[in-house]
Structures are given as structure tokens and as C-alpha cells.
Design a protein around this nucleic acid. Sequence first.
DNA 1: AGGAGTAATTAGAGCGCTCTAATTACTCTA
DNA 2: TAGAGTAATTAGAGCGCTCTAATTACTCCT
Lengths: 337, 337
Amino acid sequence: MAQPTMQQVAERAGVSLALVSLVMRQAPNVSDYRRQLVLEAAAELGYRPNVLARNLASRQTSTIGVVLNDIHNPFFAEIIDGIQAAFDEAGYRVLIGNGKRSPSGEAEMIETFLQFRVDGIISAGATMSMSSIEAASESTKIVVVGRSSRSQLIDSVNTDDVSGARMAVDHLVELGHHRIAHIDGGTGAGAEARRRGYSEAMTDHGLSAEIVTAGGDFTESGGYLAASELLSQSNQPTAIFAANDLSAAGALHRVEDAGLIVPDDVSIVGYDNTALAAMQHLSLTTVNQPRDELGRLAVRFVLERLRDKRTDSVHHMVAPTLVNRKTSSRLTTGAAT
Amino acid sequence: MAQPTMQQVAERAGVSLALVSLVMRQAPNVSDYRRQLVLEAAAELGYRPNVLARNLASRQTSTIGVVLNDIHNPFFAEIIDGIQAAFDEAGYRVLIGNGKRSPSGEAEMIETFLQFRVDGIISAGATMSMSSIEAASESTKIVVVGRSSRSQLIDSVNTDDVSGARMAVDHLVELGHHRIAHIDGGTGAGAEARRRGYSEAMTDHGLSAEIVTAGGDFTESGGYLAASELLSQSNQPTAIFAANDLSAAGALHRVEDAGLIVPDDVSIVGYDNTALAAMQHLSLTTVNQPRDELGRLAVRFVLERLRDKRTDSVHHMVAPTLVNRKTSSRLTTGAAT
DNA sequence: AGGAGTAATTAGAGCGCTCTAATTACTCTA
DNA sequence: TAGAGTAATTAGAGCGCTCTAATTACTCCT
């Protein structure tokens, strides 16, 4: 499996090694005649640049690593789209690593990317400690997406989860609901802020007595379990705000299992507005996170550091919006106690 | 962002460069005393091996690239789990590339991995031409998953889609259905085999006159559209077999939109048995592809080529099974014409 | 104490490329 | 047609590591 090298291309084309290098890097000041010769020789040999060698010498890889907290969560898969599109334009390639929903899995992927000397890393939904991420930032440019941060060292792009959660609560209150419970995201990225937004909004509406939170973990089964807990309480909620779409789907099923109708008996609101929520069979009312924009912003920030040599950190907040679908509706007087 | 090098570690530890290299590669025949010295110096300096340099010299990367046809399709995300688990055990790290559902996107990712000189590539659900994949196999070990192949050059791991499709049809016939339509997967991996299995089974059951196929593309919206087409026909099907879970979900919605009840009026069967199908709110009857096993087998095959130097190609077929959930039921006499 | 045999360490070439500095080839002007 | 100026090409060092071969340090016998 020996690959042809530049040396061989040079010999075949009858030029120097250095000239081949110039051609491969599309440098200016190469005559068309020689460029042609080199290109032909390369094609005949099936030459393919060796990124390892190239980057050992040039000290850059033109490659960005993206660490996803969980490849199974559609939210992260959708952020990738914006990231990939933006980096394609900028001439970088992107490699993806799966964090397997654990801080150590994320840390391993970051370590791998660092060993590969990628030019930058975007970490989506990181659950690992901020200090470990900051440590990695000594070796490359790192941007965190979907997780709030005030780090002096690394940039972050994030939805304003506090106000997103408030929107969900406001929406439900507007529909007449009072007994609004929250299924949270445990230690997941953004869970804390959504929890806080929920409490604050409830309090603002004079419903602090109605605050009820059940523990979830951003998965469907977590949502199912949490909903069980909520339904078994004496004072069943008439609405549930789940910390993400996955757990909202789980809650939805649990509620229907209990013989209740969504949204007539219980309204449900999710978070993220993933393709899952948009699936017409679910049609989940949810809080939209502009995934594409989040991805593109993250890219912009790493490019700013890479190209413009920016060194001070930037923290960008994106505004969420409410997407009204079929799992939420006005509280019927019958259901109200 | 200059990183410490082995040279610096060697100086600090007061040993030779070569010794540091031995320690980093966990080679035997290094005294505990010196090993300790080196490890400490490395830790103090925050030394991290440079994979690029290491592999330039050793001509291997201990890294495998996995190209997913579409990172949004849960089927592929689930194959990753098995792949990752198996490679973790074997001491390889895995990098993921997104093919963006297009042959050219896949080809680009393969090219990137080849330039990085990965030790092997697993391509999941490849839609690019077999000959391009074979061309790449001159440079590294490649295994194709979820797509049938008879290539002499590269290995494949695949579910027996023909018999999987037959199972779906058999199941529906057993439930009394005759008018069973198929929503296919277009040019997607496995689509052709599933189409064939469908036709063959229908014919075997003496239902060749009932064969109806609508064009899908393995997406939810494709399934929705295809179902529209089927419902608008004079002779509406009483059952639909969709080529994957995503399009089954789309079809499901379209059928319900038409005011029909699933499964009472129309039964629906999907394919893949992804987490989506298992979602309790959907509860889709589907054909199971053992994703974890597919992933692990693919890993085994690349390891066999890597470690045991196998050179002849292997094509492995895995048996599918039917998973009976809530979207299929016995044809009611009322619905039968 | 002198060797033989083995264990531990190191020197140094080389992996495939980039990049600076030097060289050579042109073009234009006077 | 010589000289200046620019464009095109090349030599050669070096990126950070591995790996073979050579060297040095130990052990254990006799």
C-alpha cells in the first residue's frame, strides 16, 4: 500500500521536488507549462498529498474537529450542518468525534483531535468541566456551542436558554395553565439555565407554589420516567415543559399511556425544535434553537481566532423562539380543577 | 501555541530522544527508573505526542475513519456504537465523517481520510459507486456496511435485505393483507434489495397483480409524499411496507392526515428498527437490522486485514428479524373489499 | 577478575512534506 | 547588448517522530 510521493511526481515530471510542492499548494508564480507537467505526472501516478507530512512541515492541518456530546441526539447532528457548510466555504475540512454522552468520552475525543494537531475544535453540548476545556485551549482554538460559559479563554455560542424556558412557560400560562411541571435535563448542557428560566417565569406569573421539577437526562426514556413521577402526584400537572425534544417525546408517550389526551388533557412543550419535533406524527410544540446559526457562528469565531488572530474571548447569545404545534392547547375548563 | 516536543522532554529528563520515544510507545526494556524520569518530565511540560509526526515515521495512524452516508439518519448513528466499542477494545480511535447523503460528499470524506493516512475506513450506507470505493481500497483497508457487494477487493457486512423485505410482506399477508404497497428507498443503500424482496414475496404469495411501488428516498418527507401517491390511487392499499423507518414515519403521518386509523385501516411496516421505530409514541412494526452486530463485524473485518494480513475479500450477511409493534394488525373484514 | 550473555540506552538516518534563501531564466529599457 | 528588475525554479534545512544498528551497562559464571 505504498503511496506515491512528491519525489516520484517530481522525477516523472522532470522538475524539482519544490516545484511539485508549489503546484500542490496552488502557489502563484508557477508557469502554466510546468504546472501542467506536474499535474499530469501526479494524475498518472495517482498521487495524493500526505496531510501528515504536509502539516508536520507547515504546522497546520486545515482541519477542524467537532466533538458531539451525543451523536444520537438529533440536535447535535443538526448543528453539524451549519458547521460543515461554513467550513466548506472557508476551505477547512471537518472531522467529527462522538463524546458518547460522557465527560470522559468528550475528553478523549478532544485529546485525539489535539494529537492530530487540528487547527480548531468545536465542542457541541459539552458536559465536561470547563477547566478541562480551558486546558485544551492552550493547544488550539476551541469554541463551545450550546453551553453557556464566561470563560476568559474560549468562545461560546449559545441560545439564551433562560429566556427560551420562559417562553415555554409564558406560552402555557397564556393558554390558561397553572399547574406546569418541568422535566429537566440533569447535568446536560443547558439544563441548568432552562431549569432557572422555568422557575423564574413561574415565579413572575405568581405560580411559585406550582413549581414542580422531575429529573430527566435529555433522553426519551428519561422523559418517560419523569412523566410517570409527575402523573403519580396527587396534583397532576395540566402542562409539562420538557428540557428537550427527546424527553418531551418520552413524556408524551407516558401521558398517552395513562389514557390522557395530548393536548386536551395535558399540554406538552419541548425544547430544541429538532427534526424529531417537526415530525408530523409528533408535531411537538417546542422552543426553537437556531441550529444552523449556532453552527455558523461557532465557525465564525474559530475563523476569527485563526485568521484575524483575535485573542480576547467572545460569548454570543442567540434568541430562541417558540414554535407552536399540536401538543399544546388552551386549558379546557373541564380539566381545570 | 507551540507544543513541547520529545526533544524537550528528553532534555528535561536528562536522557536521549530515543529513550523518550520508547517510553511513549510503552516499549519493553526500559528501566523503571528512567521511565519514571521521562514520564515526570513529560507531565511537567504538558507533553502530548504529535500523531502526525509519529505516523509519518511509523507509517500508521491507529485511527479508523468512518464515513456515514447521513449523520441525521439514526440507523447510521446506531451503527457507530458497535464500531466504536469494538475499536476501543482494539486500541484504535475512530473519526467520523458525514457524507451528507450524497455520493460526492462521501467521496470527499474518503479522500480526506486517505490524506490523513488512516489505517482503515468503514463506509456505512455508501451510495457512491463501487468502483470509486475500490479505487480507494488501493490505499487503505475499506469495509462497506449496509450495502451489498460482491467486490473482489473490499469486504462487506450487510443485512439480508431481500429476506428482510420478504419477512415484512409475509407478516402482512399473514395478517390477511393482499393490497400491500411498497415505498422504496430510491438509490439509497439496500433499497434495491428490499424492492426485490418485496416483489418476490408478493409473487410467491400469488399477489403479483397487487404489486405497487411508490418512490421514496429514505427520508420522512419522501415517505409522506409517496404515501400521498398511494392513497390517491383508486385501489388504496390496506398495508404499506416502507423501505426504512424514517419513510415509514412519513407515511404514517400521511395516512393519519387522510383520516385513516393505523393500524385499523392501514397497516404500516418499516425497516431498520432504529430508536425512532422503538419510540413508544410511534411504536412502529419494523424489520430489525442488528446495528451493533453490523458495526462489530465491520470492525472485525478491518482488523483481520490489518493484523492477520488477510487479502481475499469477505462478504457477510446478517439475518434480519421482524419486530412486531403497534402499526400492523389483522385486516378487518370491513376494510377488505 | 575476565568474559559471555543479556538488558538498557543512544546515535543517526529517514518518513514526506514546507519554506526560506539562493539561483537561474526571462523581459524590458537605454 | 549590457544591466536592472522581475518571474520562475531549485537547493537544502528542518518539522517531530520511529526504528535499526551500534554502544554501553549490567549480571552471572567460572
